[in-house]
């Protein structure tokens, strides 16, 4: 079976600094893959390369083994089915929660400004559908009560959830989560891991997630990939990773008892 996403030999330099130095990665359809590694390992840079926000210097990225993603713009990649959240939350602060999610659905619709001006049938039908979809995703993420609040007035954990709801609205096949549990307490994290598993089943989604919370990683991921200094140094099931000596020196050893 061809993997959903295939990354080969990805490299990226920033003014002499080798942020990515040959990353190989495969994500199968329906898989939850965790991406771990010490700070500065290049995890977020990899996300940026995958979503078109940073242009990789070398290497290849294929969707479904056939569609090259390298060189595409972020919105084109989103339309092909990759959506992401951000490590430092990036919501549309002064818009309402529901508007945030409605923006997420942007790329699945077509009405232009003339449609809006003349209130064409397309505009009216789409608006209705966008709104219903947005409410649906808010419901899934448990944010229904907050729909008409400003995004910036949400609690921290809710903001993280809203980022996921917004990403879901773009109907992705692969969801990239950048530290989704950062800043959450134990109960909220537990909720989150159930949610991710639920989303995977309900929307037949695949995940790539950067996470420092090892308990979460070990619990929900089907496989783990470890990065260090811009390279993918190991990959395998959570069990294998836990025992891999290279990983222990590079990551667990370096950071001291994260596991």
């Amino acid at each position: 079976m061809t993997p959903l996403l295939q990354v080969r030999g990805l490299k990226k330099t920033f003014g002499g600094i080798q942020a990515l130095d040959g990353v190989d990665l495969q994500i199968a359809s329906g898989e939850i893959k965790a991406l771990i590694g010490p700070n500065g390992a290049g995890k977020t840079t990899l996300f940026n390369c995958l979503t078109g926000m940073t242009r990789p210097s070398e290497g290849q990225i294929f969707l479904d083994g056939a569609t090259p993603l390298k060189g595409l713009l972020p919105h084109q990649i989103t339309k092909l089915g990759l959506a992401r959240t951000f490590q430092n939350i990036r919501l549309f602060d002064s818009l309402t929660v529901i508007e945030n999610v409605m923006v997420g659905a942007h790329c699945r619709f077509k009405a232009n400004f003339l449609d809006a001006f003349f209130h064409t049938r397309r505009h009216l039908a789409e608006e209705k559908e966008i709104k219903e979809k947005a409410y649906y995703f808010l419901e899934v993420m448990g944010l229904l009560q907050q729909a008409l609040n400003s995004a910036k007035n949400l609690a921290y954990a809710d903001q993280r959830r809203l980022e996921i709801a917004r990403a879901l609205a773009s109907e992705p096949r692969l969801l990239l989560l950048d530290e989704p549990a950062a800043g959450m307490n134990a109960a909220e994290t537990a909720e989150l891991d159930q949610l991710i598993v639920r989303l995977k089943e309900e929307f037949s989604l695949s995940f790539l997630l950067i996470e420092h919370d090892m308990k979460l990683v070990m619990k929900i991921s089907d496989s783990v990939i470890v990065m260090d200094r811009g390279r993918s140094i190991a990959g395998g099931s959570p069990e294998e990773i836990r025992k891999n000596p290279a990983v222990i020196t590079a990551y667990l050893g370096a950071e001291g008892g994260h596991a």
């Binding site: 972020p74 549309f92 508007e99 997420g104 942007h106 790329c107 990403a167 609205a169």
Partner: peptide, 15 residues
């Protein structure tokens, strides 16, 4: 408005 609020996130949302 999404662009006004956060250009990067707007791009990531397919705008």
């Amino acid at each position: 408005m999404a662009i006004r609020e956060n250009e990067l996130a707007a791009q990531a949302m397919g705008i």
